[in-house]
Nucleic acid binder design. Sequence first.
DNA 1: CGAAAAAAGTCAACATGGCTGACATAAATG
DNA 2: CATTTATGTCAGCCATGTTGACTTTTTTCG
Lengths: 163, 163
Amino acid sequence: MVDLIELFFFAYRNFVSDPDEVLQGFGFGRAHHRVLHFVNRHPGMRVTDLLDILRITKQSLGRVLRELIDQGFVDSRAGSSDRRQRLLFLTPKGEALAQQFVALQSQRIARALAECGPDSREMARRFLVAMIDPEDRSPIEKLIARADQAAEARTAPRTRPAG
Amino acid sequence: MVDLIELFFFAYRNFVSDPDEVLQGFGFGRAHHRVLHFVNRHPGMRVTDLLDILRITKQSLGRVLRELIDQGFVDSRAGSSDRRQRLLFLTPKGEALAQQFVALQSQRIARALAECGPDSREMARRFLVAMIDPEDRSPIEKLIARADQAAEARTAPRTRPAG
DNA sequence: CGAAAAAAGTCAACATGGCTGACATAAATG
DNA sequence: CATTTATGTCAGCCATGTTGACTTTTTTCG
């Protein structure tokens, strides 16, 4: 097992190094990456939702979120039904950056899966899910499914809102 | 691919959280874990070797290494052939802690592989290797193989030194 | 209506673990 | 003997995590 422990360590280090290089050019760090990623995946999410996902404190999030808002990557709008809420969206500039990160990391994964053969995608998915704490799996899988569904609804809507 | 990006993130977070809890009890952090792990795997390694593996600076390593030495987890001896070198070893106390981390993380991996079926170990290994930068793979695989061989030689020696 | 709870933001202070650059010492090497 | 190598160390900086207290705005509920 020790080999897998170390491979997981080295693989993850490379995995995050791809975005790291891009982030440097903006003076951003990994915390900014995570915020951009999850806001991109869940447009209109509340600050509380983001805190739950990232499992960090309000202060830690507050710093990076303020920078991202000030520099025009994230937009924060008051909720219409509950005006205490601040709903988070990416600006076009933020979307472009988030998409760049997804592209980089997707390329690495796609290359790896291509090297591993036809069934490797499903195997990798099952392995990664199984590595997660059992009590965390269901919420995480639901989170991913919800984001996927919402993304699909945006790109291929059956009925458009108001036409 | 986005699902795998996120699963990798969540899986790794859980993966490092196991040792994190134990480390807290000693007032240590992840940096200490990494040092203990690799010194345990490569007893007698030089400081330079450790810097190459961890890819951090001398200062960053120096801080945690000094704490580990001061508190009796790591032993640093001058090399016999080259007395400039400081060869790093774990004390019995350090070995016990390092072994605890390996046990925790091995348990998680073993549980995951058991859930994934019989061939999953080799599949997971191939996937993780494929996620590593191609130019890093050979050195990393050699590093792991060397550590495995040395460990086997220590636990099941064909001929013991001097008897 | 009014009290309590919830969502968000903010401040001060602190810890960890990265980083740079410079410099010191001891020992090996040519 | 000069240079290089291995290590250690100092001072200081940055990113990102933490706690605890407090405010404002708004919703919810008795």
